[in-house]
Amino acid sequence: MLPIIRQMHDAESDEARAGVLLQLPDVVLVRHMAVFAKACRQGGLELGDLFIDMRRAEWLEAAE
């Protein structure tokens, strides 16, 4: 498991989880999107899950 994924799972607050999400390079988020989304849902960070959805939509739009 990547250390940044471990940080997300071990984060003790929404602020810590949000900080991890904001630091993620796109390539890591694309490759492990489901893992980060699941960590957001399990931690109750609804805005984190929304943030991931927005990033995904941006990538899809840019690919068109």
Score class of each variant (00 low, 15 high):
1 M>P: 05
3 P>F: 01
5 I>Y: 07
7 Q>T: 05
7 Q>C: 10
7 Q>H: 03
9 H>F: 10
9 H>P: 02
10 D>I: 04
11 A>I: 06
13 S>W: 03
13 S>R: 07
14 D>T: 13
14 D>P: 04
14 D>C: 10
14 D>F: 13
14 D>H: 13
14 D>K: 09
15 E>K: 13
16 A>L: 12
16 A>P: 03
16 A>C: 03
17 R>K: 14
17 R>E: 07
17 R>V: 09
18 A>S: 12
19 G>V: 02
20 V>G: 01
22 L>W: 07
22 L>A: 08
23 Q>I: 01
24 L>F: 04
25 P>D: 15
29 L>F: 07
30 V>K: 15
31 R>L: 15
32 H>C: 10
32 H>R: 07
33 M>C: 09
36 F>Q: 00
38 K>D: 12
40 C>S: 09
41 R>D: 15
43 G>H: 05
43 G>Y: 02
43 G>S: 08
43 G>C: 04
44 G>V: 08
46 E>H: 08
48 G>T: 06
49 D>L: 14
49 D>G: 06
49 D>R: 02
50 L>Q: 13
50 L>V: 15
50 L>I: 13
51 F>I: 10
52 I>L: 04
52 I>H: 01
55 R>H: 08
57 A>I: 04
57 A>L: 13
58 E>H: 10
60 L>R: 11
61 E>P: 03
61 E>Y: 13
62 A>L: 06
62 A>F: 07
62 A>V: 05
63 A>F: 10
64 E>P: 03
